[in-house]
Amino acid sequence: MELTRNITLGVYLPGETAIHRLDPRTKIIAATMLITLLLFIKSYEAYGFFLIFTAGIIVFAGIPLSYALCGLKPMLPVLLLMWIFQFFLYSTPDANILFSWWIFTATDAGLHMGNIITLRVLFLFTVTTILTLTTSIVNLTDGLESLLKPLRKIGLPSQELVMTMIIALRFVLILAEELDKIIKAQMARGVAFDRGSFIQKTRKLFPVFLPLFINAFKRAEELIVAMEARSYSGGKGRTKMKTLHMGRVDLGAGLIMLLFTILMIYIIISAAPQI
């Protein structure tokens, strides 16, 4: 059971491409735009353009395709199952019935809904993975902090919230290694995690979770001491050693993103009547 192998979230692949050199703010805004567009896209043509666009970014950023997609592997069975669910159970009053069997009725509306939602999931996954693969944690923090700074004015502790998110992202990998050790230790003692009924399997997880949570809380206490010893105080009066600068690359990327967004909005609006 190699747990850390399929984790691509929060992993950074260092590189020298233009995508890597982009200002983190440009990348975060672009990713947010892409995610927002995904929520509205309902036609296959739009997904076609989206596929070309994301594939272009992946190639341009020099990310090995197998690596970008390996995080998807554990999700596939669930995705397939949910697609079948949508196919058979979702329907609208005016949908054409493709075939029916026992209590299940497959309609073209269900097929469309299943396809669209599954595609949306796949692309959401790809967009966030590309963002974290090409942006180091430090850059991601700086970018988010600078983008969310205006929210401080309405009383939201934006810097602290960004810090929380970064701690979460950073600790996923640390805790994954720890979880790996705990599971191996239990297996060495003869626990077979993949055997037994549902109740037996669940019971076997309890001696894994307890050490995981206790270790996590011990690490949390250490981190609290470390941060307090360095007088961490969130956003108040903090300055940066390295400030962010937008350059010519960002202008280019911004223009490409703008064109793509306009194209997408055009497709979404022109396809609006048929849902």
């Binding site: 810090m163 929380t164 701690i167 950073r170 805790l175 949390a220």
Partner: peptide, 11 residues
């Protein structure tokens, strides 16, 4: 609060 929420989120 920052650290504990972060680590629980990580889990």
């Amino acid at each position: 609060k920052i650290v504990i929420s972060g680590i629980l989120g990580a889990i």
